[in-house]
């Protein structure tokens, strides 16, 4: 005679939690394994198709060519990256400070906002490449112009987001502040700016990657101005010399910097909004 053991409650719970862990693992696997697998497939195709079709490296270099070029010219690539990073960060900080400052100013005066906002929208539609030469004429080639171009391209998303946030305050909360006879300044500092934070943060996320595009564009047009050139300058030189693998390396370096910059800004945003906002709460779970 066999005695069947009935699983106790604790065991059952154990089982189900194990199951959950397994399910979680599967989810994890799919979430990370999927993209990694896709990348591997993509890279192998990229590696073998040029070899198979006998495409020259200066038309389409293989991933190994790109890596080799990056390693070989690292003494050029790394300084160029540093310069672009520096220009982008300065441009971004400028656009954040000036953008938020101007938005607060506009939002605190109805007359100013109504009179100037349409022009802010119009200015936003001007292609930055078109006004870049003017900036070079005004500020000379080199660092200053590049930073200004980087600043300009990141400036408008911050203004439009911040203004939208400052004007999206919940009506009841506005009434609450009226009820306590809050001054304009108190309402701005204690209500409108905190309420606009999620909007400001998403503006910053957009602008940080734009700032890189701005500085690389700036380097195309404003050149190096005596000093060493950044990624944009390196790309123009590589293109002229048909150093296609190095050109790829520059582009990928720019992209990596963009990703890192975006992640840093996202992290800051999450820290700022951590205590209360839904977008940050989602990430917490």
């Amino acid at each position: 005679m066999t005695v069947k053991t009935v699983p106790t409650n604790a065991e059952l719970v154990n089982e189900s939690s194990k199951l959950k862990v397994m399910k979680g693992k599967q989810k994890f696997n799919l979430k990370y394994l999927g993209p990694i697998l896709a990348l591997v497939i993509f890279l192998s195709l990229w590696q073998f198709i040029p070899a198979l079709l006998d495409i020259k490296p200066f038309i389409l270099p293989k991933p190994t060519d790109v890596v080799a070029a990056a390693v070989k010219d690292w003494h050029l690539l790394w300084p160029a990256m540093q310069i672009t990073i520096f220009e982008s960060v300065i441009g971004f900080i400028l656009s954040a400070v000036v953008g938020i400052g101007i938005s607060v100013l506009l939002a605190s005066s109805r007359v100013l906002e109504i009179s100037l906002y349409p022009y802010a929208v119009i200015l936003q539609t001007i292609p930055i490449v078109a006004i870049a030469p003017i900036i070079v004429i005004w500020f000379g080639s080199g660092f200053n112009s590049i930073v200004i171009i980087s600043f300009l391209i990141g400036f408008f998303p911050i203004v439009s987001n911040t203004l939208m946030g400052l004007n999206s305050v919940d009506k009841n909360m506005g009434d609450l502040f009226k009820l306590y006879n809050a001054s304009k300044w108190q309402t701005m500092v204690k209500l409108r700016i905190p309420a606009a934070m999620p909007f400001i943060m998403s503006g910053l996320k957009v602008s940080c990657t734009l700032a890189i595009i701005g500085s690389i564009t700036g380097e195309y047009i404003a050149g190096i101005g005596g000093g060493k050139g950044g990624l944009g300058y390196a790309i123009t030189v590589a293109a002229v010399q048909l150093k296609t693998p190095y050109l790829f390396a520059c582009a990928i370096a720019g992209a990596l910097f963009g990703i890192v910059f975006y992640l840093i800004v996202s992290l800051v945003s999450r820290l700022v909004l951590k205590s209360w906002h839904e977008s940050a709460m989602e990430a917490e779970k």
Binding site: M173, Y180, Q186, S275
Partner: peptide
Amino acid sequence: NLLPWRTVLDNVLLPLEL
């Protein structure tokens, strides 16, 4: 109608601050 970025204490402090 509480300010979500303020703690309970800070929410109650708001009228006194203003």
